[in-house]
């Protein structure tokens, strides 16, 4: 504990004493994020159907759009997993390439989300329309904001990887952003199910 003695074996991100600490801390942070998003889901569920004079959700939600966004995130989660796998094989080039693919998919997702929001606003459903639409835009928007933050963060990591190479510190950071990215996918699964799919049937 006293030393920055690096272990010689094990995944790179765990080799320094602060590696496991940070990763555990980040898992705990993700647990807090679970509660954060669950509060948004609870709000959405309680305010469900409160459209006021605005357009109801089932008239606007479309399956192709929701599915496309879902697949973009699912694939990006997969490529992110591969990136971390590459890191554990200590392949810097593979890591950077897969991270860039992940980033591109994430940007694609964001593009679709922005397009979707703009579309809804044109149809007269804005964040100020009614309780339901406030909850909808806040829930999906918070997720979108997390993805945006992830994109910037991931860019910073890629720059660091290219400049400083695969050190234990940067490996730890990469592993953490990987966790973050997968977590956003998990949240999206619930948004897809609880918001889009249920919104289409009820």
């Amino acid at each position: 504990m006293s030393e920055h003695a690096e272990l010689k074996t094990g995944p790179l991100e765990y080799r320094r004493e602060d590696g496991p600490l940070t990763i555990l801390g980040f898992w705990i942070f993700l647990a807090a994020e679970v509660v954060l998003f669950s509060t948004l889901f609870a709000t959405y569920a309680v305010l469900f159907g409160r459209y006021g004079e605005a357009t109801p959700a089932h008239e606007l939600f479309e399956m192709p759009m929701a599915l496309t966004m879902t697949f973009l995130l699912l694939v990006s989660s997969f490529t992110c997993g591969i990136a971390v796998h590459m890191m554990r094989k200590e392949s810097l080039k593979g890591l950077v390439i897969w991270l860039i693919i992940t980033l591109a998919l994430g940007l694609g997702f964001l593009g679709f989300e922005i397009y979707e929001f703009v579309h809804y606003v044109h149809e007269g459903a804005t964040i100020q329309s009614s309780a339901f639409w406030s909850a909808f835009f806040t829930l999906t928007g918070t997720h979108g904001l997390h993805v945006t933050l992830g994109v910037f963060w991931c860019t910073a990591i890629i720059i660091q990887l290219i400049r400083f190479g695969l050190t234990p510190v940067i490996a730890r950071k990469t592993f953490v952003i990987g966790l973050y990215w997968h977590f956003l996918d998990v949240v999206w699964i619930f948004i897809f199910t609880a918001v889009y799919l249920i919104g289409m049937v009820v």
Binding site: W27, V34, V35
Partner: peptide
């Protein structure tokens, strides 16, 4: 994470 899911269930 499990406790997080428990709280999430309670909240929702």
């Amino acid at each position: 994470i499990l406790f997080g899911f428990f709280i999430a269930a309670v909240v929702i």
